[in-house]
Design a protein around this nucleic acid. Structure first.
Length: 568
DNA sequence: GCCGTTTTCGGCCCGACTGTTTTCAGTCG
């Protein structure tokens, strides 16, 4: 897939044009094209072959031609042209907070700044501060921007972001005069990683609420502090992270929540629609002329445009608005539709929770079942179980189940898919188990596609675990053709896992969407190894919702009885 | 550069905050 590659080119073109002072809308168009490509589920190359590039919103005749040129020749003339006269290191400066194209352009023109080192020098010797429109404070802010840029603030995993956000939310609720309060932004939309943490609150005295948060002991630095808006650096177990807080009147809360939840593309489309209908949407409400017609609740804002209240996870401008207008918005899975967890480890292999405790934890969450999926012997590093140990564990599970009412532990190892695609436990044993998850744990680059396909030929296998093998924190994943695996799963009637551990979220939302389109069933498992692990289910469901999966697409929305029928 | 049940030309989301300015420009989301 060359999606990312081409997206990066467009992004660089946008940066270069912006520094050169090109028409802002042109820059925006390249940015939009880059963002669309980055987020595109389809392979841009196959789209180009099928002559469907123009059907992608944000791709027009200009960018389509450039994509085709690049696919054909490996080059893009516009790219060379845009970057001519721009030193390599200059574009990177746009990543620095508080430093935008205008200032970069100025520093380049007046001081011949070519890269970060030059910029730092210009700050040190005072030449930057001496430029027109600059001054001590602006330079100081740029210096701080460089500081955090050099700390290479990567994107924040959703689990980390939500932990910090809920901590701040708890503190904010103690503020005098505070009304409603919620997370917003990409965190509310449950993206797998977020850039920053957005929180919205309503209240009469915004300045006081913002001061309240500024005095939170975990706030290390106040970046901005106004009457409606504040930015803070908050300390956490996961490092310092930026939290943005906005305060609005309670009567504007719905409009503000809609606006600050985004996504940007979704909101821009709404604003365009509003304009067509003689309305105006802002974070303060929906207006006809000077008259406010909605704003207190999100639902009213959407209703003013004849739209339903979209689940935040669907607000990505991926066709949801058009479908809703036709009354065909799909119903997606809810957080409490999940009847059980289909991937947890116990202290029999590399987990640290006894079976009896797992059963209590599962029941405590209102589940009807929990699949105990300890590793098989090939995963020796994880204390993988031999066939004899598997049988022993099955007996203990049966004994526990005999004592449980309305809840079952399911016996189901996470069996290794070996180098030749066979499974790491004998067929006659697999036949006796409730559920069989097959996963790759070694040989990430070796014939992974063929091995997975062969494993799926085994009639005892039910689910392929973490099919891509990627870790969000930085492991690329298997060398695998997921399209082929999806088609194999469709043909052989197997389920694929959505591993819901926050650093995996594997399959990702794009392949999940494809799975849904192919009618492939998805199984949600948290890959729990320790206490708190079951909580990861919310991230899996969040991603499932982003992929528009419904109850019927998900194995563990089934009752125990129907699940058992489906598995055997 | 993209886009169109008002348009193939002429629009393109819009407001807060900050710092530099005597009324606004840059940056951000």
């Amino acid at each position: 897939m060359k999606n990312k590659e081409i997206s990066a080119l467009f992004s660089r073109i946008a940066d270069a044009l912006e520094i050169k002072g090109e028409l802002p809308f042109k820059v925006l168009a390249y940015r939009r094209a880059a963002a669309v490509l980055e987020d595109l589920g389809e392979d841009v190359e196959s789209l180009a072959e099928e002559k469907k590039l123009l059907s992608v919103p944000g791709i027009g005749s200009g960018t389509a031609a450039k994509i085709e040129e690049y696919l054909k020749t490996g080059k893009m003339k516009k790219y060379q042209e845009a970057l001519s006269g721009i030193p390599e290191g200059l574009l990177d400066l746009l990543e620095v907070q508080n430093l935008g194209a205008k200032t970069v352009q100025l520093a380049h023109k007046e001081l011949h700044v070519r890269n970060l080192e030059d910029l730092k020098k210009a700050i040190r010797d005072g030449s930057l501060a001496a430029l027109r429109g600059m001054g001590e404070k602006r330079v100081d802010n740029i210096r701080k921007g460089i500081e955090s840029y050099e700390k290479a603030q990567e994107r924040i995993p959703i689990y980390v972001a939500l932990t910090i956000a809920e901590d701040v939310l708890g503190y904010l609720k103690g503020a005098a005069g505070i009304g409603r309060v919620s997370v917003a932004g990409s965190l509310r939309r449950m993206k797998e990683t977020v850039g920053d943490i957005d929180i919205l609150a309503s209240g009469k005295n915004g300045a006081r609420i913002i001061r309240h948060l500024a005095s939170y002991p975990k706030v290390r630095r106040v970046l901005a502090e106004g009457t409606t808006k504040g930015s803070f650096v908050v300390a956490s177990d996961f490092g310092d992270r930026q939290v943005d807080l906005r305060i609005v009147d309670d009567g504007e809360y719905g409009a503000a929540l809609q606006y600050f939840t985004g996504s940007k593309a979704h909101s821009i489309k709404l604003r365009g629609m509003a304009k067509e209908r003689g309305l105006k949407i802002s974070e303060y409400g929906v207006f006809r002329g000077d008259k406010k017609i909605a704003g207190r609740d999100e639902e009213d804002v959407y209703a003013a445009l004849g739209l339903p209240l979209f689940p935040p996870e669907m607000r990505e401008d991926r066709g949801e608005i058009e479908l809703a207008l036709e009354g065909r918005l799909p119903e997606i899975v809810d957080y409490d539709d999940i009847r059980g967890d289909l991937h947890v480890h116990s202290d029999w292999s590399d987990g640290n929770i006894p079976l009896s405790r797992l059963a209590e934890m599962g029941r405590g969450r209102g589940y009807r079942y929990l699949a105990v999926c300890d590793h098989s012997r090939a995963a020796s590093y994880a204390g993988g179980l031999t066939p004899a140990r598997v049988r022993l564990q099955m007996r203990e599970i049966a004994a526990l189940n005999a004592k449980l009412k309305g809840f079952r532990l399911l016996a189901g190892p996470e069996v290794d898919i070996l180098a030749d695609g066979s499974l790491d436990l004998p067929d006659e044993l697999l036949a006796e188990l409730d559920v069989v998850v097959g996963s790759i744990h070694s040989g990430f680059k070796k014939n992974v596609t063929a091995r997975m396909l062969k494993a799926m030929e085994n009639s005892h296998l039910d689910i392929i675990g973490h099919p891509s093998g990627r870790l969000i924190s930085g492991r690329e994943g298997y060398n695998v053709d997921l399209e082929a695996v999806l088609k194999g799963a469709q043909r052989l009637g197997k389920a694929l896992e959505l591993n819901s551990f926050y650093d995996r979220l594997d399959l990702n939302e794009f392949y999940l969407k494809k799975a849904k389109d192919l009618g492939v069933t998805i199984s949600l498992g948290t890959d729990t190894h320790s206490s708190g692990g079951l909580e990861m289910m919310r991230f899996g469901v969040g991603i499932a919702r982003r992929a528009w999966l419904g109850k019927k697409d998900i194995l563990n929305c089934l009752s125990l009885e129907r699940l058992k029928r489906k598995l055997k």
